[in-house]
């Protein structure tokens, strides 16, 4: 009688263990066996409880880490967005064309000249030439560390298109190292007016200005005579 009762008890307890394991497997972190009796089976029950403890701890840790990683990822994505935005902003900012004197435009170029930037730079310069009617523009490349054939090609194209609009383009700020490099590369920049410093270019531009003013004055004075003749 007592034996069958015992077997009945043990069956119940095993069923309980199964239930607990099933709910843990389903994701319940709180389920435990919590056996109150002391016998051979309770040792196994305690061990299972411990295992569940460890397992749930791991799970919680993993979830925490996953969340941290996700947080970091979203932060990085946000930073990347900012970087892209700033790159776009810089692109616009980095090619300002300003009128510094009567008839004289200056475009200081700083940093690297890639194709995209040259495009923007060229557009800015040509627009400004048309807008202001200036006939002399100075391209200052003091801030360009490397002039390779591509950069030189871009510069040549810019100068040529400015010329098509009737503006003379002077390139200034060529360092001795860059001058030597250009010569070794074999690039012919002789069709372009170049000056060592921005100051030299300014002086040249002003001289040109004076010359053209004199020509204007002369034509003013000589025109009536020609009409009388």
């Amino acid at each position: 009688m007592g034996e069958t009762h015992n077997i009945q008890r043990i069956k119940e307890r095993i069923n309980n263990i199964e239930d607990v394991l099933a709910s843990v497997a389903a994701g319940d972190n709180e389920a435990r066996i919590n056996s109150e009796t002391e016998d051979d089976l309770s040792g196994i029950e305690a061990a299972i409880d411990l295992l569940i403890d460890d397992l749930t701890d791991e799970l919680i840790q993993r979830e925490k880490m996953q969340k941290e990683v996700e947080d970091k990822l979203s932060k990085i994505q946000e930073q990347q967005k900012t970087i892209f935005q700033q790159q776009a902003d810089l692109m616009e900012l980095s090619s300002p064309v300003s009128k510094v004197w009567d008839n004289v435009l200056i475009l200081p170029v700083i940093g690297t000249l890639d194709s995209q930037r040259t495009q923007i730079m060229m557009e800015n310069l040509l627009e400004k030439i048309v807008e202001t009617g200036c006939t002399i523009s100075i391209l200052d490349i003091t801030g360009v560390p490397t002039v390779d054939t591509q950069v030189a090609n871009h510069l040549l194209k810019t100068v040529t298109s400015a010329r098509l609009l009737g503006a003379e383009c002077i390139i200034s700020g060529i360092s001795p190292a860059i001058a030597q490099t250009i010569v070794h590369l074999g690039i012919d920049l002789s069709s372009i007016k170049t000056k060592a410093t921005l100051q030299d270019a300014m002086i040249y531009a002003m001289k040109q200005n004076k010359l053209s003013e004199n020509v204007k004055l002369q034509t003013l004075f000589t025109d009536p005579d020609e009409n009388e003749d």
């Binding site: 490397t146 390779d148 054939t149 001795p176 190292a177 490099t181 070794h184 590369l185």
Partner: peptide, 15 residues
């Protein structure tokens, strides 16, 4: 001068 030369040469090759 040499810094500029090697940098420019590399720039050509990379391009």
């Amino acid at each position: 001068i040499n810094q500029t030369r090697i940098t420019t040469a590399v720039s050509e090759l990379l391009r």
